[in-house]
Design a protein around this nucleic acid. Structure first.
Lengths: 345, 345
DNA sequence: CTGAAAGCGCTTACAG
DNA sequence: CTGAAAGCGCTTACAG
């Protein structure tokens, strides 16, 4: 900070030119053993580290990538970020991290900032991958990016996701098999999550096929990752038309829904079954365990970063959405539908 | 990526010098309305964004700070990172993110990388704040940093934490008040977490004061944030000398311990009480809810970043540890000690 | 109010 | 094997 040591000081101490210092440090050309030794001595004596910023300006490569996700505090994002970071480090890349806090309108501004930082590429989860000014901006700037959790309809974008529709269908299929007929879909922010919408769609399809009516929908407000006040949520749940099962668009929401249900005397799964989507690990530790669709979150992060790395080196990569395998995770939070008794709770 | 637009292109289109372009963009000097207009036209037509990297090289300021934490997937870190990022953005700073994955020996290397990236400062949680080569390196480089969750004994380091000893004492005091006499401390990695050690110390102190013997200690291996296999953990729990209460060094561990206890037929809190430390929000949603010591994690992140920001601008800040207020969070996971029956489970 | 020039810390042809 | 020089994209005295 105070007196950053530059390549000139190293050269001075080693008694050679800065070009030579650069060469021995990067091993980019032959150097005599003596000079090499002197340079190495100077480097360690001065605790010299070449400035990435000077280097970047010259090479036009920053070896930095940007991540933008809605939130860090949802384990789903946290764990894929961990995957991205791991692979980034393996390729000696650094990660610039940002969160939109679910404000889709911040995406563009954030992307601008990241672009100004000269990131070589981005991994991002946007509100709506098919209608995003942030992505359009990236396309225009020709900066490579890989979407995570989004499933864009456009075939020219790179993305890593699970099949949200299929996952939701599978889960709702399980619910139906358990005898549930009145299933409600509890949604976090359709507008800010195209995933939520796809899961809803999967739910509708499964019910359609079973000859059941469209699911009732409960849209829930959030503050960050925390759904609204438990009692507000409880009141809303009470307002539903006595569903026997609640399919929540994500696990965090499902946990809140279970707590809220409990608070109004609804036993889970005795009175109502509750399922989520994501498969966060805590879901397996609690009682009842949370039925869900597990996504390989960390692997999704590593896969996305591997693709991005390839893209950054202009390696040829087939565009499109990579669908990783999801898995139904059974759990004690769902059970056979209670016997019909004309009108629920 | 492909044809990044530079200040020269803008100047060319606007028919002025690059100096003038710089001036209107930064509003750093008077400019005539006409020129300003032409420059602005060129900027938006070309979608020009000044390169932060060029700018940084000249100004010697990157407006970037680094974060290093053991893991992203522990909600405690995730949420403080969110706080750091929020404040960083408010000060137009960007955040470079890294995780050690609990490998203390990676700290130094990570710090080197961050230094090479010319971060202006760092927020970090290290394994041992009083014995850290990474911190020594930062001191030598005179790069400001603020510790988070660590409580260094040295008075010259900046840190934001809760009082881990006091928190642990408080919690264990509650346990003792409930009649518990055989309390075991379940520890995550003492070697990689000075917090864990302090919490242990608080536990010992509280038991000492009550005239109880030192707590039995169970050290648990981790893989990332996941404690070892549930059945391994269960076996280890079984090996304990029939404690009536388990104080776990963090909430994630407590959840795993509860699950493992259940798996061997120990009811929580009927047969054994379990408490954690951190106060993660999920702890309040589950049944039984998790007794814990709540830390204001997000606020700790924002506070740390505010201090760092001040430090980066060479504002005078009192060194030392800021202790934020922790709070005992009652929970259904702890209850009165079962009546003595000569030898536990 | 504006421009030419220097320089931030590097890397890399180009000579030798 | 080594050095002098140019240049990456900016900002900022210094002149005018």
């Amino acid at each position: 900070m105070s007196e950053p040591v530059s390549i000139h000081m190293v050269a001075a101490r080693a008694g050679c030119s800065i070009a030579t210092v650069s060469r021995v440090i990067n091993g980019t050309a032959q150097t005599s053993a003596e000079v090499r030794e002197r340079v190495e001595e100077a480097v360690s004596a001065l605790a010299y580290r070449p400035s990435e910023i000077g280097r970047s300006l010259k090479t036009r490569k920053t070896r930095t990538i940007g991540i933008v996700v809605p939130s860090f505090t949802n384990p789903v994002f946290a764990s894929s970020i961990a995957g991205v970071e791991e692979v980034a480090r393996a390729h000696s890349r650094t990660v610039l991290l940002t969160a939109t806090e679910y404000h889709g309108e911040r995406e563009e501004e954030i992307v601008e900032t990241l672009l100004a930082k000269q990131v070589e590429g981005l991994v991002l989860t946007v509100a709506d991958a098919d209608n995003s000014r942030a992505l359009d901006r990236l396309d225009a700037a020709k900066v490579p990016y890989v979407l995570l959790y989004n499933q864009p309809a456009r075939a020219d974008r790179y993305a890593v996701s699970v099949d949200n529709i299929a996952g939701a269908r599978e889960l709702v299929g399980q619910l139906i098999a358990l005898g549930h007929k009145r299933i409600a879909f509890v949604a976090g922010r359709f507008r800010t999550s195209d995933r939520s919408l796809l899961r809803y769609q999967g739910c509708v399809e499964a019910m359609d096929e079973a000859g059941l009516p469209k699911p009732e929908v409960l849209e829930v407000d959030y503050a960050g990752d925390q759904p609204e006040e438990p009692d507000v949520l409880a009141t809303k749940l009470r307002g539903l038309n006595a569903p026997t099962a609640l399919f929540c668009s994500n696990d965090l929401l499902a946990l809140a829904v279970i707590a809220a249900s409990r608070s109004i005397g609804m036993k889970v799964p005795g009175d109502v079954s509750v399922a989520g989507f994501d498969g966060i690990s805590i879901g397996t530790m609690i009682e009842p365990s949370l039925a869900s669709i597990a996504q390989p979150t960390r692997a999704m992060g590593t896969e996305a970063m591997e693709i991005l790395h390839a893209l950054c080196q202009a390696a040829p990569v087939e565009p499109g959405v990579r669908l990783l395998q999801h898995q139904f995770r059974p759990g004690g939070s769902i059970a056979a539908a209670p016997v019909e008794s004309k009108g629920g709770t």
